[in-house]
Amino acid sequence: MLSKRIIPCLDVKEGRVVKGIQFVDIRDAGDPVELAKVYDEQGADELVFLDISASHEGKKTMIDVVRSVASELAIPFTVGGGIRTLEDIKVTLRNGADKVSLNSSAVNRPALITEGADYFGSQCIVVAIDAKYDEASENWHVYTHGGRTPTDWLVTDWAKEAAQLGAGEILLTSMNKDGEKSGFDLPLLRAVQDVVQVPVIASGGAGSSEHFYDVFTEVDADAALAASIFHYKETSVQNVKAYLKKKGVPVR
């Protein structure tokens, strides 16, 4: 049976791991390769690296990080942040990443999803969606540029479109829940799960092992991603998996 995946996410800026709480405050949480190794040892099923460097130098550093991670670890990892062209996708994957995550660039130019999927296969293309609930329309809207820019897309429509264009996976972050540690956004996840056939990674809101249990049993998410609770050692991947196993959720 396919097991549920636990995915630590590392936000990388100029080669160092940081984590923005609700996309604003940033604290330094260490070296990406060292952290990646720790997570691998703890039983992380996959890793996500989001490059939030603004500078050209930072982007180059990210390729070195990708190479080091691919050299030292035997688990798959995804790289996102600033991937805008097919050439960017090629460079990232050829340096050892298994998947790329596209966010703003895919909203700006949806054909990028298809170009990447045609060239490397859908399995390499993750579309990351930052979702924020809008009280007035009672629906979730897609935001880009690290959550700063609202778009006209409804999250469910964009998720459907992205999957049709060739996305192999949807990484769905709830901006309302991100950093709150009050649990994943189950209604949002359920809404997206209902409209796409590709795996969905739940992101935003993880604060305890129970939250992972909820997201796997109540909405049947394929994977769940978290950052700060792992970085600041509030719990470990190991603990979360032990808990899930005890409760009968299939984990590796």
């Binding site: 396919l2 097991s3 549920k4 688990i75 399995q123 192999g168 056939q197 590709v198 590796r252």
Partner: peptide
């Protein structure tokens, strides 16, 4: 869901083959 994506358990049918030496019915990434 398609693709088949994630860690799934191996069921081994021919454990005696050289390639399968010390390989257990463990999870691998598909």
């Amino acid at each position: 869901k398609v693709p088949h994506m994630g860690w799934n358990e191996l069921e081994i049918h021919h454990p005696g083959k050289a390639l399968m030496t010390d390989v257990e019915e463990d999870h691998v990434y598909f």
